[in-house]
């Protein structure tokens, strides 16, 4: 697969290595490791992963500082050009704070940090990221977060649902998210943010390999393009 993937590391990221391993394992190519302070992305970048963790110690709001770091200006520009961007967990928080995705991630409704594998319903099986899943199917993916309670106003939620931009919904109430939304797409469909960690579900030894298909779907579209 001749494409160039990159994984961003912010101070406090802790799922960047897992993400890099998943990309390497599934694509057979080593992704570039990108540092938050880099102002520019490589011009040939084909796929950007914004990983989980606690960027900048979650100061101010989860993802708020990272969203304003130098590399995010280039990520926003790349997303505007149509480069696929996947934000997982803290990465999802960063993408909402950067306004690449609508809504916000708030403290879990039950206050507690939630760390377990949860059922996810694939709401849209035809997006760039979900083409390898059947719409309506249920997959098992782990979550590990404190601020995963998705919020957007009703008008925005209606718009997301009407346009098929809810990629995943929790199969049970995990964190109080509005309409149990677990992952959303931008209007163009090339940016996905999700709280669950597909990169932690790529082989059976991890308890589920259901996350593999997400990466396979994106990488397939890139190698065909």
């Amino acid at each position: 697969m001749a494409f160039t993937a990159g994984v961003i590391t912010f101070p406090g990221s802790n799922c960047d290595r897992d993400m890099a391993v998943a990309i390497r394992d599934i694509s057979g190519r080593e992704p570039l490791r990108l540092w938050h302070g880099d102002a520019d992305l490589p011009g040939n970048i084909d796929f950007i992963a914004v990983p989980g963790g606690f960027s900048y110690g979650d100061y101010l709001r989860s993802g708020a500082m990272a969203a304003n770091s130098p590399i995010m200006r280039s990520v926003i520009a790349a997303a505007d050009r149509g480069v696929p961007v996947l934000g997982v967990c803290n990465g999802f928080q960063v993408l909402t704070e950067a306004r690449l995705l609508p809504g916000a991630l708030m403290r879990n409704a039950g206050i507690h940090f939630v760390c377990r594998t949860v059922p996810l319903v694939v709401e849209n099986g035809s997006s760039l990221f979900t083409s390898r899943y059947e719409t309506g199917s249920t997959i098992q993916i782990p979550v590990a977060h404190h601020d995963g309670n998705y919020y957007a106003d009703d008008e925005t939620l209606d718009e997301l649902e009407g346009e098929g931009r809810v990629a995943f919904r929790y199969g049970e109430n995990v964190n109080g998210s509005a309409r149990q939304i677990a992952g959303v797409l931008n209007a163009k469909g090339n940016v996905l943010g999700m709280m669950p960690h597909p990169e932690r579900a790529i082989e059976d030894a991890q308890g589920s390999a259901d996350g593999r298909a997400l990466f396979e779907g994106v990488f397939e579209s890139l190698s065909v393009a």
Partner: peptide
């Protein structure tokens, strides 16, 4: 608007 508050919430 740009940093101190998240005007979505």
């Amino acid at each position: 608007r740009r940093l101190l508050a998240n005007t979505v919430i």
